[in-house]
C-alpha cells in the first residue's frame, strides 16, 4: 500500500456481527490524498460500519485497513482525522463551545481554535448555549466543527446534511467542497446522490457490504445521449443511422435516442433538416449518479436511495 498516495486503503475488509450478519464483505476501498470521495450505498449496505472500522470503533473480522499510514484507531492516525459518524453526538448539558473544549482536551489542542471552527459552521453566536437546545441542523454543524477542530488531513463525514433545511444543505455542500479543495481528503458517506454528485471527485458504490463500482463521477456517468423528436420518424432514423451508424440509434417512446455527446446535437439537427425531416426537439440526455446507482443496486425509493 502506498501511504503517500492513498489516505485510506482497505483490502478484503470484512466485518461479521455475531455469526450471521455480514455487514462488510471483502471491501476494497481506496481514497486518494486531496480528493473528495463519495461513498454511496443503500441503508444497511455497510457504509457506516466501514466508517466505524476506519475510526477504530469497530474491530474488523478480516482484511487489512490503513488510514493515513496507520492501523485504524491508532492515536497518530486519529490525531489527523476529523470525523462525524451518523448523527453528531455530544454532551447535552454542555454548551457547544464546552463540547469542543472536551474534544480539544482529548486531542491535546488549545482552546484557541474553537471560536474559529464555530464561526466556520455559523454557530459562533450560539456557542454558549447548551447542546440539548440545538436544532438538528445545528447539531450537525457542531459535529462538523468538532471534526474540523484538529485541522485534519482526512475528514470523514457520514450523512452530514441530515436534518438540514435546503439552505443548510446548500451551505453544507459548499463547506464540504471548500474543505476538500486543498490537500485535505474528504470521505463523504451519503444517501443523497445529488449531493454526492455535486461535491465528489470520485465515488464508490457499496451494496451488501461489497464495493460494486468505483470511479470518477464523469467516468461512471459515461457518454451521454441525445433525444430527438422528429417527423417522419422512420426517415429521421434512417438519416441518423447513415450519419452515425446503425448501432447508435434506437427508437424509444416515439423519439430517437442517439448515442452521442451533447456537442454533436447541432450537427445532427442540421443533417436531419437537410434530409427533409421536421425536427421538433433535440435534447441532451445525461445519466445522473442516481441512474447509475439504481442500475447497479436495482432499488429506488422516492428519488433517494432507501
Amino acid at each position: 500500500m502506498n501511504g503517500s498516495e492513498y489516505v485510506i486503503e482497505t483490502r478484503d475488509l470484512t466485518k461479521v456481527f455475531g455469526r450471521q450478519v455480514r455487514a462488510v464483505d471483502h471491501l476494497n476501498l481506496s481514497v486518494r490524498r486531496g480528493e473528495v470521495y463519495g461513498f454511496l450505498g443503500p441503508n444497511g449496505a455497510g457504509k457506516t460500519t466501514t466508517l466505524r472500522v476506519l475510526l477504530g470503533l469497530v474491530r474488523p473480522t478480516a482484511g487489512s485497513t490503513v488510514v493515513l499510514g496507520r492501523p485504524p484507531g491508532h492515536p497518530d492516525g486519529l490525531a489527523r482525522v476529523g470525523a462525524m459518524v451518523e448523527e453528531a453526538s455530544f454532551y447535552p448539558y454542555l454548551s457547544g463551545r464546552d463540547n469542543l473544549r472536551v474534544i480539544a482536551r482529548l486531542t491535546g489542542l488549545s482552546d484557541d481554535g474553537i471560536d474559529g471552527v464555530l464561526d466556520d459552521v455559523d454557530l459562533l453566536q450560539r456557542g454558549g448555549h447548551r447542546f440539548k437546545t440545538y436544532s438538528q441542523g445545528m447539531r450537525q454543524r457542531l459535529g462538523v466543527a468538532a471534526a474540523l477542530l484538529k485541522d485534519p488531513e482526512l475528514l470523514i463525514l457520514d450523512e452530514p446534511t441530515n436534518g438540514l433545511d435546503p439552505a443548510g444543505m446548500a451551505e453544507m455542500r459548499l463547506l464540504i467542497r471548500k474543505l476538500g479543495s486543498g490537500e485535505r481528503s474528504v470521505l463523504l458517506s451519503s444517501h443523497m446522490l445529488g449531493e454526492v454528485q455535486q461535491v465528489s471527485d470520485r465515488v464508490g458504490v457499496i451494496s451488501h457490504g461489497t464495493l460494486i463500482t468505483e470511479g470518477a463521477v464523469d467516468e461512471l456517468r459515461g457518454k451521454g445521449s441525445i433525444a430527438v423528436r422528429a417527423e417522419p420518424l422512420a426517415l429521421a432514423r434512417r438519416s441518423a443511422e447513415q450519419l452515425l451508424g446503425a448501432g447508435r440509434v434506437e427508437v424509444m417512446d416515439g423519439a430517437l435516442r442517439i448515442d452521442a455527446d451533447a456537442a454533436d446535437a447541432p450537427r445532427i439537427n442540421r443533417e436531419l433538416v437537410l434530409a427533409g425531416v421536421a425536427v421538433s426537439e433535440v435534447r441532451p440526455i445525461e445519466r445522473t449518479l442516481e441512474d447509475i446507482f439504481l442500475e447497479l443496486t436495482g432499488k429506488e425509493e422516492n428519488g433517494h436511495v432507501a
Binding site: 477504530g56 484507531g73 492515536p75 486519529l78 459518524v85 455530544f90 482529548l106 491535546g108 468538532a146
Partner: peptide, 9 residues
C-alpha cells in the same frame, strides 16, 4: 464514539 474517534487510546 465521539471521544474514541479523537486521539487517546
Amino acid at each position: 464514539k465521539t471521544i474514541l474517534s479523537q486521539r487517546p487510546r
